[in-house]
């Protein structure tokens, strides 16, 4: 199996704050890695480093064979990496001035010069796949949160990414809409998409993840199969975190 993400001794600072400490992590093709941890632990920052939305200070990062240099280094591979890595944000970040379909067509047409008819067909197919084909010509503000997030997933998929990053994709959703988004993600995982998911949905993590990673204060303190991490955590930090989030 090929490694899609390879991090070696990665360090990241916000000013003086050391937010990622000596991160070593690899993600294999087809693998679903779920990253859990308290707010401010650095889990979002970690996946934002993968597509260069956050630069890092030292260490090595390789995404699908493209090495990405630390801050100040050669960032030429960034364009290539971003073409191959899709991202879904907590706040959806759909483009409010474009219809749902245009949201999805924009990147293939601008980045890959996909002809409009082809991009249009892809958009329709993807909307079908995430279950909102009937909303294609609406503007994002007319959709529910769950529908918007599904559009955001379709938009990222339109670039045919090798890796999908999910940054707390259900945290801004009303409870009744969380399920529909997780369903789409579950399908995606089943189809073999490589995924890195930051989430507080422990049920989803247990069910879908191939590997769960627990981050505490910028460090990976526990890593393993979901059943091991959830049922038999070795580190006391993990134990206390899980006892707090799993209780309710």
């Amino acid at each position: 199996m090929s490694q899609i993400v390879k991090m070696q001794g990665m360090n990241k600072y916000f000013g003086k704050l050391h937010v990622l400490k000596d991160i070593n992590l690899t993600v294999e093709a087809g693998e679903v890695v779920v990253i859990i941890g308290a707010s401010g632990s650095g889990k979002s920052t970690l996946i934002r480093c993968v597509n260069g939305l956050e630069p890092f200070e030292s260490g090595k990062l390789e995404v699908d064979g493209h090495p990405l240099a630390p801050k100040g280094g050669n960032q030429k591979s960034l364009a290539e990496i971003r073409k191959e890595v899709g991202m879904v944000f907590q706040q959806f970040n759909l483009f409010p001035h474009l219809t749902v379909k245009k949201n999805i067509m924009l990147a293939p047409m601008k980045v890959k010069n996909t002809p409009q008819v082809v991009a249009n067909g892809t958009a329709e197919r993807l909307l079908q796949r995430v279950g909102i084909a009937d909303q294609a010509n609406k503007y994002p503000s007319h959709l529910s949160g769950g529908q918007q997030q599904r559009v955001a997933i379709a938009r990222a998929l339109a670039m045919e990414p090798r890796l999908m990053l999910f940054d707390e994709p259900t945290s801004a959703l009303d409870p009744e809409m969380i399920g529909e988004v997780l369903d789409v993600m579950r399908e995606l995982a089943k189809e073999g998409m490589t995924m890195m998911v930051v989430t507080h949905e422990m049920g989803f993590a247990r069910e879908v993840a191939d590997r769960v990673i627990y981050i505490h204060e910028g460090q990976i303190v526990e890593e393993g199969k979901p059943e091991d991490v959830f049922d038999n955590p070795q580190n006391e930090r993990t134990q206390s975190f899980l006892s707090r989030v799993l209780k309710h």
């Binding site: 971003r82 073409k83 899709g86 924009l106 980045v111 670039m159």
Partner: peptide, 12 residues
């Protein structure tokens, strides 16, 4: 977030 979404999709 709008800029981040654009960049993450591969736009310059």
């Amino acid at each position: 977030g709008q800029t981040e979404a654009g960049l993450s999709l591969g736009l310059s």
